[in-house]
Design a protein around this nucleic acid. Structure first.
Length: 893
RNA sequence: GCGCGGUUAGCUCAGUGGUAGAGCGCUUCGUUGACAUCGAAGAGGCCAGAAGUUCGAUCCUUCUACCGCGCACCA
């Protein structure tokens, strides 16, 4: 019992000091807690916050609720682990980063995989650091020694193991399906990431020979491959199985009519067109009638523009094309009528709001039904309890109707899917052990490239220009840290310079091989493409014909032969080494042709490798099917939720002792908005991998809203920054304001007024304590207090309060516990008990004063204990004035 | 279409089978050393509407109205 308290307290100074004191004590780490052997653990996995921004009020709510649980159970003698972490948040982070790139006038589609990955990595690490600082400021008593990022090797390894297990069990498969495609973000999305919005669009009735059908998407007509009616529909029974001829705006059409249950006879005309490439239902109709009708005919590309056999509409965006096509149909007299304001639901991207384009793509899917069964059972039997209870019904309903989960994402930020395809036969290998990696790199840009001048293996031999040098440097950076042993380069100047720049960065030796030179274009060398045009019948023949040979130049066939020979020799000599081959656009095409064993036409129609572009080849054991040993890894990454769905066990699994002690965890605390995204998947994957539920209780908190019930958002400008108000009013006030009146599953209303109210409460606690401390006299220490009946009554009441608070906390009724404490401390203890004791404290009789004091101190210290989980800083600070050298944080509850 | 939640003080929200609570706001009074970031006193609610169960309902049941949300392949 040392100093008096200042009349006011400086929360800023205090919070920093106290947090450091807690950290220094080591008690955030359960291994350091002084507990009897066999003390029961209590574990919470902190939901890994997205490492793409700062914490907002929603995070503050979650962290506070978790910290209350952790501090409460720690004081109750449990071996308490709260493991903090951050999520790479694949798609979400990619979206945030895209915006950043956009501001800088860049875009990710023009960046190399490694380069982009590295930049986002740095970006997330920076965010993570700031986020953890904020987490500390909010008083979170988590074990920083076990901090985990979802891209830590231990997590990736575990995720890979899970994927392999699922694959072997037949629960993960790769299949071509029509998936939700966002044309803006150029990636597939899971069904959960689709937001359906109601919209009014025209419904077009189109004549199809003797039939009429209704559609809102006339633009997809070019992709039609059949018509369908309900088999029970008497009106159309006679058409089933027949071919129908009709007038189309690009010429006559001829489609077969199939009978399928998916068609609702009551809707529209009861006839639908079947567009398997651009409609999931139609795709399924096709699958059921594969033998009778043609499959997907793609007429919309990844950017949402018309492509393929669409005549004059090629290149138009879907919305534009729709109007023009409808107009054309009108002209042709095949548009029967238009219902103007047809209300329907359209699928949009939950992030950007753009209309999704259903596209057929091969993707990895998780078969969900077998995983959902045990997950439903776990909740039904009470092994997992969800608070609020009503959410169990919602959980139940979702799992019951669950569909297979597309886990492939076409972005680079994330955990790359550990699936390799044999380059020769296409066979799939999971978790392939790669022996060595070979990289094929095109040289950087030259002025010839820039000005479209033919500069092959001839005399020009242009050097890199400034852009080219920078590109080479970029490529060099992307090849760094990959353990490259050797660079094999064409000896032409542009390749040589590129090789030297890369060598300088990665420190590997260069050997030159003129077999990797560009095709010698003979008499065409030095000419612009325009000038060269007249020299062949068709410019595209330069590429198409593998035997065509310019004067004094080489044919593609000749290039292929020399490359084949050189590649074979280098393969034999260096198969165990990581190699970079630096060569030229055309030459690399030939190399790819050799590796993939495909036709000349196919390789020439394939994508062009940009300057300094990198292609990775993985060399591993021989394929059991074809004997090839060159593989290419699936470029896609996992849906973030596939990895975060493994969070409760992936964080512990690689440390068997921790896993045994702390798994299953006790409580999962998170927002109700991610019940399906995350909670349900954690239960499924947890049960699947470990045979045990990942947690026993799920506590769901609501969305944070402002005092007018508006959702907080940056665009509305009504965001309250939790750290900002913590600076102003103190963390304790913010925490308490977030708890009182906040019930499970309901939205939380927070306003600065409310926070101010609880700041006043903190002041009240401070001043009541100050008063008590002020009345302490050293002579009291010698006096054994004799409590009066009234004193005893107060102490009994205190006990009752403690029982109530304990019960509330055990039942996850944080708001009730907080209210009871608030009310008791202010309106019973301060207003009544302290007021009544003032006379006795002032008594001449030391024994009487001592008793009065003893009662107050007892009640105060017990109250501080109970308040500590809610308001950790102010309570800890005061407690130490009464009990120096002790830590309230680890006092017994 | 199915499901869920809400409707309580001027505002935002807690709560309970038997005299209704918090924060902010409002009214009046008060600076005698814990606290004006306060204290004292107070105003303010047929707890959405209707019916039912009950000795008794704001709380349980049913229906209705309005608000919000989730899920759903109907072209």
């Amino acid at each position: 019992m040392t100093k008096d308290l200042e009349p006011r307290y400086d929360h800023a100074e205090m919070e920093e000091r106290i947090y450091k004191l807690w950290e220094k004590s080591g008690f955030f780490n359960p291994d350091n807690l002084k507990l009897p052997r066999g003390a029961k653990p209590f574990t919470i996995m902190m939901p890994p916050n997205n490492a793409n921004g700062l914490l907002h009020m929603g995070h503050a709510v979650g962290l506070t609720l978790q910290d209350i649980l952790i501090r409460f159970w720690r004081m109750r003698g449990r071996k308490t682990l709260w493991l903090p972490g951050a999520d790479h948040a694949g798609f979400e982070t990619q979206v945030v980063f895209d915006k950043k790139l956009d501001k800088e006038g860049r875009n990710r589609f023009a960046m190399g995989r490694e380069e982009l990955y590295k930049e986002i990595w740095d970006f997330t690490q920076e965010n993570k650091k700031k986020m953890y600082e904020q987490t500390k400021k909010l008083g979170a008593s988590c074990d920083w020694s076990r901090e985990t990022f979802t891209l830590d090797p231990k997590i990736i390894e575990t995720v890979y193991e899970t994927f392999e297990k699922l694959y072997k069990d037949g629960l993960v498969y790769r299949d071509l399906k029509v998936i939700n495609w966002c044309p803006k973000h150029r990636t597939a999305l899971s069904d959960l990431e689709v937001k359906y919005v109601e919209r009014e669009d025209p419904l077009y009735y189109i004549k199809y020979g003797p039939l009429t059908l209704a559609t809102v998407r006339p633009e997809t007509k070019f992709g039609d491959t059949a018509l369908a009616v309900n088999p029970k529909d008497k009106r159309y029974a006679k058409y089933i199985g027949k071919e129908i001829e009709a007038k189309g705006i690009l010429g006559p059409l001829k489609f077969k009519v199939v009978g399928d249950e998916a068609v609702d006879p009551k809707f529209g005309t009861g006839v639908v067109k079947v567009t398997p490439a651009h409609d999931a239902t139609d795709f399924e109709i096709w699958q059921r009638h594969k033998k009778e009708i043609p499959g997907p005919k793609i007429i919309i590309d990844e950017a949402g523009k018309l492509t393929g056999e669409v005549g004059e509409f090629k290149g138009l965006k879907v919305a534009e094309a729709r109007e023009k096509i409808a107009a054309k149909m009108q002209e042709f007299g095949i548009l029967e009528k238009v219902e103007a304001n047809y209300k329907h639901q359209i699928a949009t991207c939950y992030k950007c709001g753009n209309t999704l384009e259903p596209l057929p793509r091969p993707q990895w899917f998780v078969k969900m039904k077998p995983l959902a069964e045990p997950a439903m059972k776990a909740v039904k039997t009470g092994k997992v309890k969800i608070h609020p209870k009503r959410s169990e019904k919602v959980y139940w309903h979702w799992l019951k109707n669950i569909r297979d989960w597309n886990i492939s994402r076409q972005i680079v930020w994330g955990i790359r899917i550990p699936a390799w395809f044999c380059l020769k036969c296409g066979d799939v290998k999971i978790n392939l052990k790669v022996k060595s990696k070979w990289f094929l790199v095109r040289h950087g840009e030259t002025d010839s490239n820039k000005n479209l001048i033919i500069d092959g293996g001839g005399e020009m031999n242009a050097p890199l220009n400034e852009t080219g040098i920078n590109q080479a440097k970029e490529a060099a950076r992307s090849l760094k840290d990959l353990g490259i042993d050797l660079i094999i380069s064409s000896d032409l100047l542009r390749a040589k310079q590129t090789a030297e720049i890369i060598s300088k960065e990665i420190g590997a030796e260069i050997v030159f091989d003129n077999a990797f030179r560009e095709r010698h274009w003979g008499e065409l060398e030095g000419k612009t493409f325009e000038e060269a045009e007249g020299l062949f019948t068709n410019p595209s023949d330069w590429y198409k014909d593998e035997n065509l040979k310019p004067d004094k130049g080489e044919s593609w066939g000749e290039v292929e032969n020399r490359v084949r020979e050189a590649f074979k020799i280098h393969r034999n000599n260096h198969h165990h080494k990581n190699i970079v081959i630096i060569s030229h656009g055309g030459t690399l095409r030939m190399l790819k042709k050799i590796i993939k064993d495909v036709t000349h036409e196919e390789i020439m129609n394939g994508p062009r490798l940009r300057n300094a572009g990198v292609i990775g080849l993985d060399i591993a054991k021989k394929c059991e099917k074809c004997g090839g040993d060159l593989y290419e890894q699936d470029p896609d990454v996992f849906d973030t939720w596939f990895s975060s769905g493994q969070w409760p066990f992936a964080t512990l699994m690689k440390n068997p002792k921790d896993f045994k002690t702390y798994y299953p965890t006790d409580v999962m605390e998170t927002g109700y908005d991610i019940l399906f995204f995350w909670v349900a998947r954690m239960v499924m994957l947890g049960l699947y991998r470990t045979g045990k539920v990942p947690f026993k209780d799920v506590y769901l908190h609501g969305l944070v809203r402002d005092k007018d019930r508006q959702k907080m958002s940056k665009s509305k400008g009504n965001v309250i920054d939790p750290l900002g108000v913590a600076d102003t009013y103190g963390t304790d006030a913010v925490r308490m304001a977030l708890i009182v009146g906040n019930t499970a599953g309901n939205d939380i209303v927070i306003s600065e007024d409310k926070i101010r109210g609880y700041r006043n409460f903190a002041t009240k606690i401070w001043n009541a304590s100050r008063f008590i401390l002020m009345n302490h006299k050293t002579e009291f220490l010698k006096i054994k207090p004799k409590f009066t009946a009234a004193d005893k009554k107060h102490l009994v009441e205190l006990k009752k309060i403690k029982t109530r608070v304990t019960k509330h906390l055990e039942k996850f009724e944080f708001h009730l516990a907080g209210e009871v404490l608030y009310h008791y401390f202010w309106h019973t203890f301060a207003d009544k008990i302290i007021e009544q004791s003032k006379k006795r404290l002032a008594s001449e009789n030391a024994a009487e004063a001592a008793v009065a004091y003893a009662v107050l101190e007892e009640i105060l210290l017990e109250s501080l204990k109970m308040l500590h989980p809610f308001m950790p800083y102010v309570t800890e600070e005061i407690y130490q004035k009464f009990r120096p050298n002790e830590l309230l944080m680890v006092q017994e509850w």
